[in-house]
Write a protein that binds this DNA or RNA. Structure first.
Lengths: 208, 208
DNA sequence: AAATGCGTTTGATATAGGTCAAAAACCGTG
DNA sequence: CACGGTTTTTGACCTATATCAAACGCATTT
């Protein structure tokens, strides 16, 4: 794995709002997030946008671009961030030498597919409250895996971006959060969330 | 590419309704569809199901299983079908020797990610008519790429399965198809579809 | 040929979430 | 620290799709 470090020679810094890449740009590299927070979104010609994910440190973005040698979505920094650039041809070359690295790469791509299937499930058959609960629990779990508190965190994205990701309008996101607050599941003060009843929030998911 | 053929020693036949694999089973192989038609679906503990895709000859399924060494969804034959089994460890070994094969595999996985993003866009921000139009146009295009008529085809899946895939109820699928028929875009007789005005059907997508 | 059963169509009605609008809170900047 | 723009909240109302229900078609079995 430290050989992978050799690959990631290039580090780059981004300010909030900067684009890491844009749809259509030629593909050369994957990117590992070192610090900060990104969103990826696809844009429909008619202007509609769909947020396809929120990425945090340790996660890899750009996998979509391999298929057509061009990025197929935009990646935007949601806060000041640092990334490591991983030239893909060198990654492929190295993974021919190192079966462990090869397997690792395949797992990362596969995990992305599984994640997407989860979101399809969410978008295709869950109600607004369930979607929000899944979203918050997922954030909580990923932050906790990075050493942050699972219970209290700062949302780096707008209601509108959350809504786009979850297939809801921003007003619905706002209302549902307020509703969770009234139920005593959590407290929200704009971007600050504190989960107060994790179990009950969990039980929300799948409870028709 | 004919070296890949060497890998796919095992061919297997399936009857309609047979499971190619089930969620949770240990992962050993990918599968290339040779003839026939499959669906993949993820099941939520509470019984809800989400169809994540419909696969036809030439397409590869099982990529989701790499991440956790177990299949994460079910694959079910929608008609009598034949598949080629591709033992994954041998595929990885061979792709270490053959950069072309390696690249090919990566593209296939990446294409699956891009496809999933398209579905997220569909589920997250399109209306019922648009979803149906996208679905039919996509089927048409893939069938046409395989030498079948792009205009007339047989639906191998139920309204319920289409609905699950598109995040709609079966009644909505049925009604929307009837509506397309009344508009003269196509004719539907249960499972037989004939697209009569491809252009207008296309113009449906993205037309708010 | 009748009976059984799944899948489909269509109608009537209900509702979750969308839309429109306005006020309030927040944030970056001069 | 005041200002202007953005984001969030909340309210009132509306609509697309879900839900419930019944009839129908088609295929398979007896």
């Amino acid at each position: 794995m430290r050989l992978l470090d050799a690959l990631t020679s290039l580090k780059r810094a981004f300010r909030r709002g900067d684009y890491l890449y844009r749809s259509g740009e030629p593909f050369r590299s994957l990117f590992a997030i070192r610090t900060g927070f990104f969103k990826t979104q696809v844009l429909h010609e008619d202007g509609r946008e769909q947020v396809t994910g929120f990425q945090m440190p340790g996660e890899i973005i750009g996998l979509d671009a391999i298929s057509s040698d061009a990025y197929t979505c935009d990646a935007v920094a949601l806060e000041d961030s640092e990334i490591c650039e991983i030239p893909f041809d060198r990654l492929e070359a190295l993974s021919r030498e190192l079966p462990t690295l090869q397997r690792h790469l395949h797992k990362i791509m596969s995990r992305e597919i599984v994640r997407d299937h989860g979101i399809m499930m969410l978008l295709g058959s869950m109600r607004a409250e369930e979607r929000l609960a899944v979203f918050l629990l997922n954030l909580s779990q990923r932050l906790s895996a990075r050493g942050y508190s699972p219970n209290a965190f700062h949302l780096r994205m707008t209601r509108q971006e959350i809504g786009s990701y979850l297939g809801l309008k921003l007003e619905t996101v706002s209302r549902t959060l307020s509703q969770f607050q009234e139920l005593g599941l959590l407290s929200v003060k704009v971007r600050e969330v504190e989960i107060m009843d994790m179990l009950r929030l969990r039980s929300f998911v799948g409870a028709a």
